[in-house]
């Protein structure tokens, strides 16, 4: 039995619940809006006023060719840049935690820079550099730009995981006759893989939805966020909501799977 609550206490608790509900509503309204309007049958070119419920948009998510192309470009860039950044960033993270070497201090600082620098500064200065070097902006420049900021995120995420790594395990492997490569692939890598996967997911998400840096370096290339921005001016097809909802769904699934996996491995450990 809980202790009796005074009248003032009851009012305070009620107010707190109301406040929490308001905050949640504030956070989730845009998401609910996007999902809801993926089931709307729009009148005209703009899917912004509710007409009536339909599943047509979901039956044909790729009917809008420009949108589909932009979506595919975004996926291609995200997959490529994430692969490169995950490898580079993980290597930096391992080197930073495994060894202390000349320049590891400044390197730590440089890693944080791309994260703390405003995107507008990163994007514009990168664009200025490409312009100065007469490099045509497009797929390759966007890829380079994404890898640049992803490497930092990956390195910092993996390093947080590697920090608790017991390096005597590597000694043990070498002691048992494993050469350095085998030691890495059989011992170090499997143990830090969860950290690397988490870092890869994070940087994939960053790449998919990056707008500012991408806009500066895309040239005539259109990615998913850039297409959505442009579509506000001419037309806003419901397929945008469908694809956005798909991305949302995918990230929720990944999150839940990750959570369950983490719980399972924790249960095994205890």
């Amino acid at each position: 039995m809980s202790a009796p609550i005074s009248k003032r206490g009851r009012i305070a608790r009620w107010a707190l619940n109301l406040f929490a509900a308001a905050v949640l509503l504030y956070l989730f309204t845009p998401i609910i809006w996007i999902v809801a309007f993926s089931f709307n049958e729009p009148a005209g070119r703009f899917n912004i006023a509710w007409q009536r419920f339909t599943l047509d948009n979901w039956r044909d998510p790729f009917s809008n060719q420009g949108l589909t192309e932009a979506f595919v470009q975004s996926l291609r860039i995200a997959v490529l840049s994430t692969s490169v950044a995950t490898v580079l960033g993980s290597m930096i993270a391992i080197a930073l935690s495994r060894y202390s070497f000349k320049g590891s201090g400044p390197l730590n600082f440089l890693l944080v820079l791309p994260i703390t620098t405003p995107e507008i500064v990163l994007g514009s200065s990168l664009a200025a550099m490409f312009l100065d070097w007469d490099i045509n902006r497009g797929f390759a420049t966007v890829l380079i730009a994404h890898i640049m900021f992803q490497v930092s995120f990956v390195a910092l995420t993996v390093r947080a995981r590697v920090r608790g790594f017991d390096w005597t395990l590597e000694h043990a492997a070498q002691d048992l006759g494993a050469k350095p490569l085998r030691t890495f692939w059989k011992v170090t890598f499997p143990l830090i893989l969860p950290g690397i996967l988490a870092a890869a997911l994070l940087s994939f998400a960053l790449s998919i939805d990056d707008f500012i840096i991408t806009l500066f370096n895309a040239g005539s290339l259109s990615t998913f966020p850039i297409y959505i921005d442009g579509s506000f001016k001419v037309r806003f097809p419901p397929q945008i909501n469908v694809l956005a909802t798909t991305i949302l769904l995918a990230s929720v699934i990944v999150m839940v799977v990750g959570l369950l996996w983490g719980q399972r491995s924790r249960r095994q450990q205890s």
Binding site: D166, H171, A173, Q174, L176, G177
Partner: peptide, 29 residues
């Protein structure tokens, strides 16, 4: 290097490979 020496070590905190079973640990060498 250690992986070419015919001596083996029992480490203070054992340094067993946590992702392998007991048998896999022993078979590693």
């Amino acid at each position: 290097p250690p992986y070419q020496r015919n001596v083996n070590t029992v480490f203070q905190q054992y340094a067993l490979f946590p992702h392998m079973t007991v048998a896999e640990n022993i078979a590693f060498g």
